[in-house]
Nucleic acid binder design. Structure first.
Lengths: 189, 189, 189, 189
DNA sequence: AATGAATGAGGATTCATTCAT
DNA sequence: AATGAATGAATCCTCATTCAT
């Protein structure tokens, strides 16, 4: 579905992300989002069915953005370890450079609001999945379900990034290297 | 003069946990919580200052409950590895037996709504912290900040429990043992 | 895009004046005012920021209405005494013909609720102020602060009108003439 | 009806006057009055039937206090003019020394809440009424209804005291003397 | 007499959404 | 497509009052 003004679509999404991350979901009414996007409340309903639809679409948009940035500089021709490190670094950089979007994603990861679209959001990460499968085929990565692989690589990193945002830890390059090493050790043979 | 009724306090807390976990904080109005607790809306305000205060107090209550159950069967006289395994198993069992409370905690782990009381909730986990310090003193556990230790032990487990609740994975005993082994390897020398 | 409806604005104001005068400000809920104005409670907030803003705007509206009617038949070319008598009579007639609005004004004349807009409401009465200044320049009116002039002219009249509304006195033409005479004597040389 | 603890009765009245005058009627809930009086909300209902009853009783109490102070130093054996000046001065002094109570009275003089007890409150002022009647019998005071006498004596003074409290005028001794003179001239032959 | 707990009713206000232009 | 007006329903919370002790 094409709309006349893609700028408005984006403006509404940006305003929603910003407001929800800053003030929380409860304080982000359609009227406030509209005002922040410089648009009439009624206009939001031209682009989105209702508030829940807006939320899910925004969630998917952010996930898609993330997946694109995750693959920056990545190529399927890279060795498994190198390729994974590229994605790993991209993830960390993304979080640092887009703290609001990162926080937004995390806030909704456990919310019942986006229950229906978590599966859909996974589609964006196919290249990563293929990389892991290749690693397992090459006997580099342990034979374990994808979920466990994620649990020992991105879960710790995500948790530590949040700790850094909360000023409870500082992730300097040395620490980052150490974390990567531990994670990579954990999932490789 | 009537006395404050502990049953009412608990009924309100239980209703709040149940509703908030199922429908989210925003969709759990004080009226709904009151009705679920079989109490007048105004009665909630006898026990809690306002909705946010209710959330924070409930969050702390759940954290405290968790911390108590975490230490079941634990003793400071146990060897580090064995002691940690006790706590680890207790955590998994707690999540399985209290899925609503577990989901509740996760939903608010990163929420700005409970920002003020996260520190306070940490106090409940002192025995675990001391265990880790002992492990480091005995050169069993790697010399790393507490946050990183958590990131490679409880973060993966938590993530995988959520995957199991979402029916994307099944954690049988063999898998659990494997996960524990990976985690313990990751943080020990 | 719909346009703001002047009828609705007026209906809300009228309902507010009527209800507040009859039942007092505290007992005139926004819901009651809305119902009396045949409007949704939410609609009031399209025209007024909140209850206090509604009160202040209504207060100013009534004051402005009054000031307009006060000057009916008045001209700056009239002699001071005659000009003042025109305004005096207009005031009495206004009170008689608009008892609700008159009572409304009196109820809030000393209320802290309209503190901010009393000054603004004074602007409507400039012609009267100029008349008094002219009277003083022509050595007809005693040299006294405006407040004292008001205190011996409109304060007594206002008080007596209220007594009449409470059926404790009847202001026939003869009595009115006497009152005017006393007041005019009091403030003229 | 005698109550065990007259202190409590008075404390409640004082708290009510203070709160209502400071924060307005709407913000003076029974709970707040109770707290300000260091008493349980339920205790208020031991001394007063309900909120309206409390208000009326407080209004009457203040009026009675005022009437007592008005007669300080007054004697029926004084000449009319001197006697009236005593009461006049007492009234001004009362307002100055009890601004809260003065404001309270004024705020309620026009309120529909005390409609029923205005008559009753008049009983306290019998000596003043008799003085005026004596003045008329002695052909000193003009033959006019009591209401008109009040309208040209206490109404102006009351209005000017309020102007002074609002910092729009300063009533120094000279001004006060002038005002008295004008008022007395207005009502005497 | 005195009180803190308890509550149903109602308070002001905001909500997501639709209407009319 | 776009919008400000309009709204019934729902929000959190406070109220005057009563209950149970």
């Amino acid at each position: 579905m094409r709309h006349k003004d893609d700028n408005k679509h984006l403006a509404i999404c940006d305003a929603a992300i910003e407001l929800i991350t800053t003030n929380g979901f409860a304080d982000s009414s359609m009227a406030k989002i509209a005002k922040a996007a410089n648009v009439s409340p009624a206009t939001i309903y031209v682009y989105f069915e209702n508030k829940e639809d807006l939320l899910k679409k925004v969630y998917l948009l952010v996930k898609q953005e993330l997946s694109t940035k995750l693959l920056h500089g990545f190529s399927e021709s890279l060795p498994v370890a190198a390729g994974f490190r590229v994605i790993w670094d991209n993830f960390y950089r993304y979080a640092l450079e887009n703290p609001v979007r990162f926080a937004f994603t995390e806030q909704f990861a456990n919310s019942p609001l986006v229950d229906g679209c978590r599966e859909e959001s996974m589609n964006f990460f196919h290249p990563l999945l293929r990389l892991i499968e290749r690693g397992q085929a090459e006997k580099i990565i342990k034979d374990m379900p994808l979920e466990i692989f994620i649990a020992f690589t991105f879960s710790p990193l995500t948790g530590l990034i949040k700790e850094q945002f909360s000023n409870r830890i500082v992730l300097d390059q040395q620490t980052l290297d150490m974390i990567f090493e531990i994670a990579w050790d954990a999932v490789t043979v």
